[in-house]
Design a protein around this nucleic acid. Structure first.
Lengths: 253, 253
DNA sequence: GCTTTACATTGACGTTACGTAAACGTTTAT
DNA sequence: ATAAACGTTTACGTAACGTCAATGTAAAGC
């Protein structure tokens, strides 16, 4: 039995373009080409196409399929195992995406139908998520997973009053810091008040406070572009100013 | 605070190329362009980029993101729900792929380590899967899901002896059919024997036999290219011949 | 025998979300 | 003054085909 492109295409449930493409990339060459330049496929090619489509069905890339079907000694089991790993990783990624979308949907819909309590829970979760998403990797690198997880735990266990407090405190730090910045003196009363407010704010996230860690974080505010951007949002140079104030507050350096 | 491409890129954790691309497709235009042609971004653009990246993180396409962030009236909840459906479908597809790969791995490795019993189970599963993969859609369309599922159930419940029987029967149908074909008479003894063997073979898949369904299937063998290819593999025209024989066998048409 | 219709061929561009040069101008630091 | 670092536009590459366009060939009907 011999087939032209279209015939083989129908037989296998692909388009003729696909067959031409497979010819082009050398994945499946026709048995011969007739006088008019038509591609003619035989039984061998049909079988091979079945094989190709089988692996394609599994999501294997055409390049890999080429390896598998062209070299008989190719370790297809090994290839399949590797491919399985890729699929599993992809599934994990999807799981995370789905969870995220659903959480977002919950929060968005929640604006209307969620109770205050639930809303608050979602906000807390969002606070954690945003933190994770924005700073997670760097903080985990610099301070370790344990510290970050503890911090997240603390947020989760906050009461609503505490949550409002921490939000207000964060804003107050910025406000006082800005006033202090205008005085230009990091050792002055206002700057030291800002540093103290910052310590209070911090204590909502860290399970124990230390001057060293506080000073370290202050330095990070300057070194890390993202933190810097946050504190510089009102005025450039405020991250440095806060660092200086905290260094004085903690008696460091 | 104003940022050049690189600065904003670092701030947001993307490359400058990404920002230029977003500018190009009109997803995020800079606040202004300075005298040297440099892109300058302001706070508003930073916020918008955050939003964009948030949706991107969820796997939403840039075109959709554009809709969401440009038109304030856009129903983002609806968009997210649609997106979730896509993610769920993708996950289902992945599940199927993974199951398939693992089954294949089992079968491949099984050649060496699987017991006969397990091997046999895998073969049965493979028989079902191959059928599903090759003919599933069409058969389901023509005969309905219920019939197909019943058929699969029957296969699953086969004993090893029955499985071997069905395999042998399938081969015998082809062999006798070929001999009958050479006689050229679909009403002849050989052709009618082939039709009867085919009925026996069928009864392994269908939970009850009817002449009408048998004749219908025979017609499908001719109409559907894939079935036709199977029965024509030895000789072109055998699918038609089998249909004629079955029509006579069932007294149809 | 001629015309229509169906099918074949080879380009070549479009798709997604950028990566990666190339070729060249600008700003900053030494 | 010069080099390093940064900015710009233009343009090709990616995976696996879909979708024309322009053109040649085979089969079928009149």
């Amino acid at each position: 039995m011999e087939y032209t492109v279209q015939q083989l295409a129908k037989l296998a449930g692909v388009t003729s373009r696909t067959l031409r493409y497979y010819d082009e990339i050398g994945l499946l060459k026709p048995a011969r080409v007739n006088a008019s330049g038509y591609r003619i496929y035989g039984q061998k090619e049909v079988d091979r196409l079945q094989q190709i489509l089988f692996y394609r069905e599994l999501g294997v890339g055409l390049e890999t399929i080429k390896q598998i079907v062209t070299s008989p000694s190719f370790d297809d089991v090994q290839a399949l195992k590797q491919h399985r790993e890729k699929l599993l990783a992809e599934r994990r990624r999807l799981e995370a995406l789905i969870a995220n979308v659903e959480k977002t949907l919950l929060a968005k819909e929640g604006r209307i139908v969620m109770s205050d309590k639930e809303k608050f829970e979602a906000f807390k979760q969002q606070l954690i998520d945003e933190n994770e998403q924005t700073y997670g990797k760097e903080i985990r690198e610099k301070y370790g997973d344990e510290q970050v997880n503890k911090s997240n735990e603390k947020v989760k266990n906050m009461t609503q009053a505490q949550y409002e407090e921490v939000t207000k405190l964060g804003e107050e730090v910025l406000r006082v810091l800005y006033e202090a910045f205008l005085t230009g003196d990091p050792a002055g009363e206002l700057a030291q008040k800002a540093a103290d407010l910052h310590r209070q704010w911090l204590s909502y996230f860290w399970d124990h406070y230390s001057k060293e860690a506080h000073a370290g974080l202050a330095q990070m505010y300057v070194d890390d572009e993202r933190f810097k951007a946050y504190y510089d949002q009102k005025q450039s140079g405020m991250a440095e100013f806060l660092r200086d104030a905290i260094f004085i507050y903690t008696g460091k350096k």
